[in-house]
């Protein structure tokens, strides 16, 4: 798990914990738990799944995810959330269109996920070990270093969702590494500027 500190953000939004799970064992059960929590009268049920569950194959770099967190938390700090919570807002920020359902479907977890990014945005008051423990209670799998993210990226889906296949930048890339750098920069840029698109 990695913890990022956003200097300038208000106390309740200045910390983000991110864990990458491999060999996820309970994908379908986790989705059922999230659905049940949404309508549960018991706040503890909602607290248990108070995370952003993100599809790692659509994430191109740490910066990509950090940028989505930064824009989602900015919207939360300014009272401009377009979705219900800062966590769903991260998924909204990642998706290139304005369709919230599509954002959750594409960038959220699915019944068949075998890898998963779990994100908690909050304050510094909760220790990282506590957050990791809470993550391990809902996601059953192996927490691996974020450096393993790179190998999971599904570049063709990323290019498809961002409509990059016919772009000059992609067609003129010198090799696959160069192409990945270009795609990452475009994707990070799109996430950062989503609030001013359209």
């Amino acid at each position: 798990m990695e913890t990022y500190t956003f200097n300038a953000y208000p106390d309740h939004l200045n910390t983000a914990h991110v864990a990458l799970f491999h060999n996820l064992k309970n994908a379908a059960a986790l989705r059922a738990q999230i659905r049940a929590a949404a309508t549960s009268p018991d706040e503890a049920d909602r607290d248990a799944v108070n995370f952003a569950f993100v599809e790692p194959r659509l994430i191109t770099s740490r910066l990509h995810l950090q940028t989505a967190i930064a824009q989602a938390s900015l919207a939360a700090a300014q009272g401009n959330l377009r979705t219900k919570t800062v966590h769903s807002e991260i998924l909204w920020a990642l998706n290139p269109t304005n369709n919230i359902t599509e954002a959750l479907r594409r960038y959220g977890n699915s019944d068949t996920s075998t890898t998963l990014l779990v994100v908690r945005v909050g304050g510094m008051d909760v220790p990282a070990e506590t957050v990791l423990k809470q993550m391990n209670e809902v996601a059953i799998g192996d927490v691996q270093p974020l450096d393993t993210l790179e190998a999971l990226t599904d570049w063709s889906s990323v290019k498809k969702y961002h409509k990059l296949n016919n772009e000059v930048a992609i067609k003129t890339a010198r090799d696959v590494n160069h192409e990945h750098q270009i795609v990452d920069n475009i994707v990070v840029t799109s996430v950062a500027m989503k609030s001013v698109v359209s």
Binding site: T67, L74, E167, A169, I186, M193, V196, V197
Partner: peptide, 22 residues
Amino acid sequence: ARALLKCLRSGVNVPGVRFVDA
């Protein structure tokens, strides 16, 4: 921001966008 994105997509060397609070 939009001009920078258009440039990136067109393969023009420009800095990417990292943060927006319009």
